[in-house]
Computed example of a mutant assay.
Amino acid sequence: MASILDSVNQRTQMVGQNRLELLLFRLSGQQRFGINVFKVREVLQCPRLTSIPRRNRLVRGVAHIRGQAISIIDLSLATGGPAITDIENRFIIIAEYNRTVQGFLVGGVDRIININWENIMPPPKGAGRDAYLTAVTEIDNKLVEIIDVERILADISPVSTELSDDVKNQPITVAKENLTILITDDSAVARGQIKRALESLEIPLEVKKNGKEALDWLKEKAKEVDGNVQPHVPVLVSDVEMPVMDGYTLTAEIKADPNLADVRVILHTSLSGVFNQAMVKKVGADDFIAKFHPDELATAVKKWLNAENIVAETE
């Protein structure tokens, strides 16, 4: 138990400091890519793969690991590159995204680095693989690209954004006039999923691509209303992993600002693991939801909209 707590304490020291750990890897060439260590369960030399009928072309087969059948996705193919060859001498990264476990076939694994989110930028427009990237950074004077895994998973197995009738019929008990729900996520696919899931609430949605954009918008809103933002922006739905400023740091900044502190923050993330609840508690988020289940997201938003301390101002 002590070792688990020590591990939690060590990891949560980065929370609110806008830092993360990246596992660096290569695909079919020398270009390096990165994945958040929090999403990685383990890295293995690629085992024997079992072919499955009518599989998606991006899935090279299934690996049987510790009693679990795991689909192995060729990340090079998934990002528009050539298929990875000589796979028996390659590696798989076992990771957990959006409540499921996947294996990502990669050409080679480099090392783990600790980096500040401020040094991670949105991908440049016009980059060859920009449609599959959420961010880029520079390590040892070389570009490192961070792949939009949510887009790849959506290409392979699209998720429904439709709400059930039960959730659609859950009432909103506050006046909707002058309200805005703020959304921030660096993945274009995730932003679209969230917007479609919340459109039925019939409340305007303001969408930002990272925590810095969201925080700047909230501060401008506070100037506009000359004080407490919460009667106008009662709920923020935020991703955790974002360039420039992550969701944990965004939450901590919001809760430290008297004009923003009453905004309810729902962290909505593909991250899952034993450390998340400790992190959420540390930064003061109001809710934590693993991606992507539209009913759970809409239910959480309605819950905080209907909370007793939310008083919507009307004209």
Rank of each mutant, 00 (worst) to 15 (best):
R66D: 13
D74N: 06
A63E: 01
L75W: 04
N89E: 12
T100A: 03
G61F: 13
L58Q: 03
V106T: 08
I72D: 02
I94Y: 14
A63I: 08
N98W: 07
V101G: 03
E96H: 14
G103F: 12
T79A: 09
G107V: 04
D86K: 13
G67M: 05
H64S: 12
L105Y: 13
E96V: 12
G61A: 03
T100M: 01
I84L: 09
R66V: 04
I92R: 00
Y97P: 09
T100Y: 12
I65D: 04
I72E: 07
G61N: 07
G67I: 00
G80R: 03
S76C: 15
A78H: 07
D74C: 06
I94N: 08
I93H: 01
L58V: 10
Q68R: 04
R66S: 09
N98T: 13
V62M: 07
I65Q: 01
D74M: 03
L105R: 02
D86F: 14
T100L: 07
T79K: 05
G81P: 09
A78F: 09
F104K: 02
Y97V: 00
L77P: 06
D74H: 10
S71E: 13
T85L: 15
G81W: 08
F104T: 04
Q102E: 11
L58D: 08
V59M: 11
G80A: 00
I93M: 03
G81R: 11
R99L: 10
A78C: 06
G61R: 11
S76E: 02
I73C: 13
L58H: 15
N98G: 05
A95R: 05
N98F: 12
I93D: 02
Q102N: 15
L105W: 12
G80M: 01
E88H: 11
V109K: 07
R99T: 14
